[in-house]
Design a binder for these strands. Structure first.
Lengths: 193, 193, 193, 193
DNA sequence: ACGTGCGGGACGCCCCGTTCAT
DNA sequence: ATGAACGGGGCGTCCCGCACGT
């Protein structure tokens, strides 16, 4: 069986088109065409283009190396470093550089797509929670420390690098994030004595 | 002198629509409707929607408080702090929060709009240059210091906060940036003894 | 009985509109309106207005009484006479007189519509070939005779009458062609002794 | 002053654009652009695009070598031969071949442009009258002979060759007309004994 | 009972021929 | 004499629903 199912083909095609062109600029026809699926068949699997985007975002979260943030084999801060190192390198590998799908969606979101907005916000929250847990663990018990704020700061810095990399189609922002921003921010984690 | 030009009305309407809905999702009809001009008048002033966006971006740069970055009355680092404080506060004032236009465009850019991409990249470069000049001046002569890298880091962090604020329609990312990220990054500027 | 497709309605409406107003002056909206189909349905069946015109031309060829040119019951020259008699009479029957679709398209053709040009040229060549075959057969074997040239001359004379009839909305050019030009040109066919 | 006046520049530009693209496909903007004339200035000189076309047609008649048809130095039939020889050669010289403007307009004409139709019909009638006069003179007094019919036949044959030449962008129809059709038709003129 | 070709109308960006006010 | 206003329309595409065919 060459294709497991038509639905997954649509999801993959939608993911790639959304990533490259953006949500609004991507048409349903472009998705079904890329997926080699009959045009009218789209709405058997998804109620709307927005529903497909929701599914795409859900899978995108699972593809990010969030599992590393709970790895038992690494120290908390090493998990964070390794996680960002992997996703940032991955960000700069595609040609052209399409940025982070969360940032791209976040920039396109408006009141027209409330479920998309909710999904993005939830994704950010989930990501921030995982990061904050590690930061808090690294700081050790008893230390007064806004782990949530620092987690958000890390995400923001990464997302900003992602959009700038997309716009310039350059890996330079990725390098800046990894060598400059990430170490500076992680240095703010109080070390247990 | 012919009739009073409606060009400025078109530009303002375009700026607001682009900021709120995004470049792709904004139709020319929505722009002319908001500007209260007939549809056909649009193309007397702009050859295409992309050309209007270029003009909107050009004006957006001029509206950002970049002048503060060359203020003679402030110390270099204070200029940077004041600049980001103003633009970040401004970012969080609109209702809903529409983010930074540069980040929004950056996330929508693809090979379909090469002139838009060039304009965004140029805008980032100009901004980074102004920031780097101040950081270098603050570090003092003779100090080994990658001012350009730190300037890019500052921009990335701000832009990431902007997109997250837009997605969540929340001022929290702005606060995180001002209270967390900005001080941490500026602390990396070496102080002249 | 298959579901009544709207494609044929579109083709017929396109044929009539093209014939009456010309290719450029006919809008897709006018076609769909005459065919009583929604606008978006047009592009389910044709990729462009030019593609519809190609189909219309194809069918137009089939509607011309070219079959008479291969009739087994007539002598070669009688086939030619009968063919032109039928198409010329048909030309003058519509109200108003819309001319020959080939001539009309030929006059509108430019580099903007290369496929249309190719189709018209091919149609002329096909027509000329059928005519030349009859002329050659009428001349008998062994006679030195430019059948192709005379076939083109016949076509040209007919097409000229068609455009003049269209312009003047008069049947007079048709009569001139049938009573004057056609006999004179056919008299040039050498008779086998 | 490089240009005698703006009006003549508009007329020349209109003539060339109409000839190349056709009346409907030619926009007023294309005309003023080619004429290097301000766009809004068009309607100072012409009440409408149709009025410009009327003027273009009027001048087109004057540019055809109709004067030869009244030349005192040639025999009547030689005048006709020379006239068609000149206009046909001229027809095949431009690159691409744009056909005869009369035929092109005739094919585009509909009830939407009644004045254009009247002008084309009048032009044909004038042309036919000049030709018929020569044919009648060549036939000599007292001969029963439909000079008007033959003149129309000549025009039709020429016009048909013109449209076919335009469509195919080939000089072959011109040659066919000159070497085939024209001699055959002129042979029908009765010679005075 | 499912999967899809086609229907369906609103809308995309852009340009039309024309008139107005300066 | 002209640059802009003006509204309607150009062709093509949007996202989506329906009803038929297997």
């Amino acid at each position: 069986v060459p294709r497991p199912s038509m639905k997954s083909a649509i999801v993959e095609a939608g993911r790639d088109e959304f990533h490259g062109l953006g949500y609004t600029a991507t048409g349903v026809a472009a998705i079904t065409s890329r997926a080699r699926v009959p045009k009218g068949s789209f709405y058997n699997h998804f109620d709307s283009k927005e529903d497909l985007a929701l599914e795409v975002l859900r899978l995108y979260v699972m593809e990010q190396r969030l599992d590393i943030l709970t790895s038992a084999e690494l120290a908390p801060l090493d998990r964070v470093r390794e996680h960002f190192s992997l996703v940032a390198r991955q960000l700069g590998q595609s040609e052209p550089i399409n940025g982070c799908m969360f940032a791209n969606f976040a920039a396109e979101i408006s009141d027209e797509t409330p479920r998309l907005r909710a999904s993005v916000v939830e994704g950010y929250a989930y990501w921030a929670r995982l990061l904050a847990d590690n930061l808090r663990e690294a700081a050790g018990p008893g230390s007064e420390f806004d782990a949530g704020g620092l987690a958000s700061a890390l995400i923001d810095a990464y997302e900003g690098a992602a959009v700038r990399a997309r716009a310039s189609n350059s890996r330079e922002p990725v390098e800046v994030f990894l060598t400059r921003t990430l170490p500076l921010l992680l240095a703010a984690v109080p070390q247990p004595s």
